[in-house]
Design a protein around this nucleic acid. Structure first.
Length: 124
RNA sequence: AAACAGGUUUGUUUCAUCGCUCUUUAUAUUAAGGGAGGAAAGUCCGGGCAACGCAGAGUAAUUUGCCAUCUGAAAAGAUGGGUAUAUUUUUAGAAAUAAAAAUAUAACAGAUAGUGUCACAGAAAACCAGGUAGCCCUAAAGUUUACUUUGGGGUGAUAGUGAAAAUGUGAGGUAAGAGCUCACAUGCAUAGUUGGUAACAAUUAUGUGGGAUAAACCUCUAAUGUUGUAAGGCCAUGUAAACCCUAAUUUUGCUGCUACUCGUAGCAAUAACGUUAGUUAUAUUAGGGAGGGUAGGCUGCAUAGAUAAAUGAUGAAAUUCGUUCGUUUACGAAAGAAACAGAACCCGGCUUAUAGAACCUGUUUUAUU
RNA sequence: GGCACCGUAGUUCAAUGGAUAGAAUAAGCGUUUCCUAAACGUUUGAUGUAGGUUCGAUUCCUACCGGAGCUA
């Protein structure tokens, strides 16, 4: 099984992100919120992902980085859950942190897995 | 020895598994190597670098501000010294206070160039000061022989106000008083002497007595062109020096000198028609109107280096720290903690944040001598 | 990244360096009314934090904290 997470799998570009904010559907599992939208792009992977920690919740840059790194790590280790389900479609996904607390690795893993499972079931 | 405060230095280490980013090789996915700080932060200063502008002079605006030496490209910093203020200690004294020493602080040029401000209180808050307190002289009246009342004048000692009151003490002088005069002290100005590289200190002569505020305007001194890497360059995209309207094209107008003035420089052209008045077209410059396109690559850019932005996660062990438990006073076990904080053009300062450890300084407490 | 700003009652705004920091509105209490509203009276409540200059700072200066801009 492949656990890599390269540049191609990330969501870049102002237009794509604006569209996702404007017309995406959302789900919440408390500390983290998921926004997703069907789209079209050329890539060997079925998903493009973005992680957001707002500056209003976390003032210090090192704390924002710390939470983003943990979220990215959880996604990297568990992304096969979605890849198996969403093989046919192309999706843009965004994870947003909602609290101003410093989150533990276990909490993030729990809520993100919950979100990914519900999304996988809905697509099927 | 302990606790607290301040300063300086330092700013946990190793292994395994799975990953991220850049470079090189190699090749279609392997290998090798590099990968965060003392503040990367605040953006408070200075410079590099870049674009635009530039005959020159003045004004404005902004900033610098005791002296010497050293470091530095500059800002700035270090060391030493001077002056002022504050605190503490010691000495002298009845006290006020004076002298000396130590420590700390100073945005430490100028208040005698000029302007402004100084609430309330107070007679007066600043060229020229003063009353229905007080002190003194004098005239009149009353009681009466030393007082009272009223009028005229002198005064700035006393008291009182205030953050601040026109230099202080003593003597003379006077009706009472007053730098009115004298002696000593003291501040300032000018000129000189001595010491010191200098700031400055000591001292002599003459004159003088002028409150505070420049972190109010201001004056002096020294300096500054404007804008910042989202600068700028190359490519791509775009009918793009596109379209319409108005005005100007020689004693005047426009533009530049990037805030303003002087001064200075540049431009104001061509063709056709013509009744020689001008008109039309193109051109240039300025202003206005109605729309549209692009908004992403490379470079700038680095012995870390991207462009929604890498430097991580998990597990194990060691190191340091205190807490609890056990034995017992240095070992073991348990569950913890390891700060502040994350590069986006690069350097040099300043400021602020910082667990623990080491060192230095100070204060307090306890113990011993 | 760079550049220029702003912080005053719960809210919206005032205040030449001068002592008690003002006004409207909101909130509390009372009067009026059968009750409510309106009206009238009254009370509470603030200079973002820390230093400095000054006899005296909301105001002047410095450093922090927070909040809104401009620049593609």
């Amino acid at each position: 099984m492949n656990f890599t997470f390269t540049k191609i799998e990330r969501l870049c570009g102002v237009k794509a992100i604006d569209e996702l904010y404007a017309s995406g559907k959302s789900k919440t599992a408390f500390p983290i919120k998921l926004i997703y939208k069907k789209s079209e792009f050329e890539s060997p992977f079925p998903l493009r992902v973005l992680f957001v920690v707002p500056k209003k919740k976390h003032k210090r840059a090192n704390k924002r980085n710390f939470i983003k790194r943990r979220m990215r790590e959880v996604y990297r280790l568990n992304k096969h859950v979605l890849y198996d389900a969403v093989a046919a479609h192309k999706l843009d996904i965004m994870f947003i942190c909602l609290t101003s607390d410093e989150l533990e690795y276990v909490e993030i893993e729990k809520s993100m897995l919950q979100l990914m499972h519900t999304l996988a079931n809905q697509i099927l």
